[in-house]
Amino acid sequence: MSKLTHVNHQGEANMVDVSSKDSTTRSAKAMAKILMKSATLQKIKDNDFKKGDVLSVARIAGIMAAKQTHHLIPMCHSLNLSKVSVDFEFIENGVQITTFAKLNAQTGVEMEALTAASIAALTIYDMCKAVDRFMQITDVQLLEKQGGKSGQWSNDTQHSRQTSKDHD
């Protein structure tokens, strides 16, 4: 098991010193789903909400959230992001949100991608709650990351490895 990096030798919260790390291009992809009634999903597709275009507002919220992650998550570094994207796909009973964050720095952007996905989902919830209070935000997860000392990581690879270990 790897050691927790945000806790010092005395067990206290600690911001990691990344000054000795090399700056490399780093990226991360995350996702979230928001499940809802079919009528709510249709209203999103038809752009039929008084508050405005739900997905456009959610996209802007996700991008803004990624840029503010260090204000929301106590041990995150302030990062100069070079790219953030928030994309949507209609699924059977809701919307799947996929986010991407990229930069050239000494630390990764996983939390920024995850924050973007979470806030985009929360924004959809906020804009649609008047017609559907039963929506559920699910499956918030990191899909992949690249760059840095640990290189490339993919949720698909890790999940299949973990599953096979569990069955051995």
Rank of each mutant, 00 (worst) to 15 (best):
H6D: 07
H6N: 09
N8W: 10
H9I: 09
E12L: 02
A13N: 06
M15Q: 13
M15T: 02
V16P: 00
V16Q: 00
D17C: 02
D17H: 04
S19E: 12
S20L: 00
S23V: 14
T24N: 00
T24W: 11
T24V: 11
S27K: 15
K29Q: 12
A32D: 04
A32M: 05
K33G: 07
S38R: 03
Q42E: 13
K45P: 02
N47F: 07
N47V: 15
F49P: 15
K50S: 11
K51V: 03
G52Q: 01
G52H: 11
D53L: 10
L55I: 11
S56L: 14
S56Q: 14
V57S: 12
V57M: 10
A61R: 04
G62Q: 06
I63W: 02
M64R: 02
Q68D: 15
Q68S: 11
T69P: 06
M75N: 08
C76D: 06
C76Q: 03
H77T: 10
H77D: 13
S78P: 13
N80T: 12
N80S: 11
S82A: 10
K83E: 10
V86W: 01
D87F: 04
F88Q: 11
E89V: 11
F90H: 09
E92M: 05
N93M: 04
N93S: 12
Q96K: 14
I97K: 13
F100D: 00
F100Y: 13
L103M: 08
Q106P: 03
Q106A: 07
Q106R: 14
T107P: 07
T107H: 08
G108I: 01
V109S: 02
M111L: 05
E112R: 06
E112G: 12
L114T: 01
L114W: 06
L114P: 00
A116G: 10
I119D: 11
Y125H: 09
V131M: 08
V131E: 02
V131A: 09
R133F: 09
M135N: 01
Q136R: 09
D139L: 02
D139Q: 12
Q141I: 00
E144H: 09
K145E: 00
K145N: 06
G148S: 00
S150F: 10
G151C: 12
G151P: 06
Q152A: 10
W153F: 15
N155Y: 15
T157G: 02
Q158T: 11
H159E: 15
S160L: 08
S160K: 14
S160N: 12
R161C: 03
T163S: 07
T163G: 05
T163W: 07
H167S: 15
